[in-house]
Design a protein around this nucleic acid. Structure first.
Length: 276
DNA sequence: TTTGTGGCTATGGATACCCT
DNA sequence: AGGGTATCCATAGCCACAAA
């Protein structure tokens, strides 16, 4: 039987209501995140798009997914932030960067620099090099455009500059760029990008342990939970700046569901293997 | 010249989130 | 708990540029 559920989203009462056929509206407390393949497809589209801004657009979106910075923090990121604070991160191929512009907390109202609570984030050296390449290459070209259009003005310090104006990019504009092409989810937003980083990072950290537990036929939750908490406090929370208990709960639900799915899948495969 | 398109700004309201 | 800030969504309109 096909049940037609017309779910109204309270956030947009006047907008056309979404129709979910044969499904149930997901619990708002549940995260729905895109498959890795959907993200790849979208990023590839952004990179290969025929537009003179495609390069920077794609790099900004990629950087957000790679660093879990907030949209505002991406836009305010400065060239001067690309100097690693100290070499060794958790792995020695990681760099530590200090972000402090556009960050939440400790802001002075109407501060044009939007300087907030500073924090250190971890980034692979490979990713850092990619940003430095941009700073040395296309950004220089954008900077020339800026100086031509604004003679005598102070140079923008932001890392990402618009190839058109040569100046920093507005939040609204970035939002528009994010929603371009085959978005991985209809509700795809920069903030969901942050959640995506957090959950996939958790999943990658927990998967090996979940496998071992599963092989030993032990109870999953009891053993994985402490490791989950550990990864949250040492890796996820510092990188994101702050996450509430509610959000942590949301991540736990998503990760647990993913681990269950992969285990079920594995068991199904084993079962078929034994059938011959 | 008109028309279309992409990039961008300004505005505003609702909501989520963070800090004290 | 309340105030401030950021996010999300929508709309109107400007500008530069290029195709018709």
């Amino acid at each position: 039987m096909v049940v037609e559920v017309v779910a109204s989203d309270p956030r947009k009462s006047a907008a056309p209501r979404r129709r979910l056929v044969g499904g149930v509206r997901p619990d708002p407390g549940d995260l729905s995140l895109p498959e890795r393949s959907a993200i790849e497809e979208w990023l590839t589209y952004l990179q290969t798009r025929d537009s003179h801004t495609a390069n920077v657009d794609a790099l900004m979106c990629w950087t957000l997914l790679r660093t879990a910075l907030r949209a505002e923090e991406i836009l305010r990121l400065r060239v001067s932030c690309l100097q690693p604070v100290k070499k060794p991160g958790p792995h020695d191929h990681d760099a530590t960067l200090l972000v402090q512009y556009g960050t939440k907390g400790g802001r002075k109202p109407n501060d044009p620099e939007a300087r907030g609570k500073p924090r250190r984030i971890i980034l692979s050296l490979r990713a850092l090099e990619r940003l430095q390449d941009y700073a040395r290459g296309r950004r220089k070209i954008a900077l020339r455009t800026f100086l031509r259009k604004n003679p005598g003005a102070a140079e923008p310090r932001e890392l990402f500059l618009s190839p058109d104006t040569g100046g920093p990019i507005a939040y609204r504009t970035f939002w528009g760029k994010w929603k371009v092409g085959p978005v991985p989810l209809p509700q795809w937003s920069p903030h969901l990008g942050r959640h995506t980083w957090a959950c996939y990072t958790l999943l990658d950290e927990l998967y090996p342990m979940a496998e071992a537990v599963s092989r030993g036929g032990l109870e999953l939750a009891g053993l994985v939970q402490p490791h989950f908490d550990h990864v949250i406090t040492t890796l996820i929370r510092p990188q994101l700046g702050h996450i509430s208990a509610e959000t942590t709960e949301m991540y736990l639900k998503w990760v647990a569901a993913q681990l269950q799915v992969s285990r079920a899948h594995r068991e199904y495969a084993n079962w078929l293997d034994r059938m011959e």
